[in-house]
């Protein structure tokens, strides 16, 4: 695994790198979200809702890593899901490179996510019946990339994360650290502008977690990375750490 090789995997996007400099990739303005409030017409008015975010505002510039910390239930994952377009906040504005996600239809949000956002989950969430290479190539299928190009891109990315000899292995045949590296390679496959990572080292031992963090740091040099974690070592790689408490921004370091 080498940092140089991961950055090299973006060669097709080099010409866009300058454009990305000093651009705010992600901006949240006064974002509030209540779970249970978007259920629709058949819900009764007095149904209980849980407020996950209360007026959260933050920016993530391209080329920076922003860490999100806070206790369980503080709203870290909700911020990540809002940035990824997996949920639409109840109030406020979530901009991804200038586009208000809430103004898009479901299909448009899915398309935006495919093209601009890579997601790394704590539990990897690889498809168990697909090889490492097929998992990495998964987002490219929907992007309409031809098969040969998909294989080349996935192989290149797996080599970049140090798994060039594991391309045909199933997830069950890989260690935890290897699976997370496959997940990171998958998040990079469409060359996204933004990477969101939810507890990326949560399932890994210290040494493996360090390797994954090096990879994320390398990825963050050309992209905006938003990482949520309880782990101090993980947050230490961030350029800025935003502390959330009860859905509010409590502190920024």
């Amino acid at each position: 695994m080498s940092k140089q090789s991961v950055r090299g995997s973006r060669s097709s996007a080099r010409d866009r790198a300058d454009e990305r400099e000093s651009v705010t990739a992600v901006r949240l303005e006064g974002v509030t979200h209540e779970y249970g409030s978007t259920g629709g017409r058949f819900r009764s008015g007095d149904e209980r809702t849980v407020t996950a975010l209360r007026g959260v505002s933050l920016d993530v510039p391209t080329g920076s890593i922003v860490g999100l910390e806070g206790p369980s239930g503080s709203g870290k994952s909700t911020v990540l899901h809002a940035v990824a377009g997996l949920l639409v906040p109840t109030a406020g504005r979530v901009e991804l490179r200038g586009t208000d996600i809430a103004a898009l239809s479901d299909a448009e949000r899915t398309r935006l996510r495919r093209r601009h956002v890579g997601i790394v989950f704590q539990r990897f969430h690889l498809l168990p019946s697909l090889s490492a290479r097929a998992n990495v190539a998964l987002p490219l299928v929907q992007a309409g990339v031809p098969r040969a190009a998909r294989r080349d891109r996935a192989t290149t990315l797996l080599e970049a994360v140090g798994l060039g000899d594991r391309t045909t292995h199933l997830p069950s045949e890989l260690s935890g650290g290897e699976r997370q590296r496959v997940a990171i390679a998958r998040a990079l496959s469409t060359d996204p502008d933004v990477i969101v990572a939810d507890e990326p080292t949560g399932e890994l031992d210290t040494a493996t977690g360090r390797e994954v963090l090096e990879l994320l740091t390398d990825v963050g040099r050309e992209r905006a990375v938003l990482v949520a974690s309880h782990d101090e070592a993980t947050l230490a790689v961030a350029d800025r750490v935003v502390t959330l408490c009860d859905g509010r921004v409590d502190d920024v370091q």
């Binding site: 990824a84 997996l86 479901d106 299909a107 899915t110 398309r111 996510r113 495919r114 093209r115 997601i119 989950f121 969430h125 690889l126 498809l127 998964l138 987002p139 299928v141 929907q142 992007a143 998958r186 469409t190």
Partner: peptide
């Protein structure tokens, strides 16, 4: 997972 990686 398919939805999260952009499958409509």
């Amino acid at each position: 997972v398919l939805e999260s990686v952009g499958f409509p």
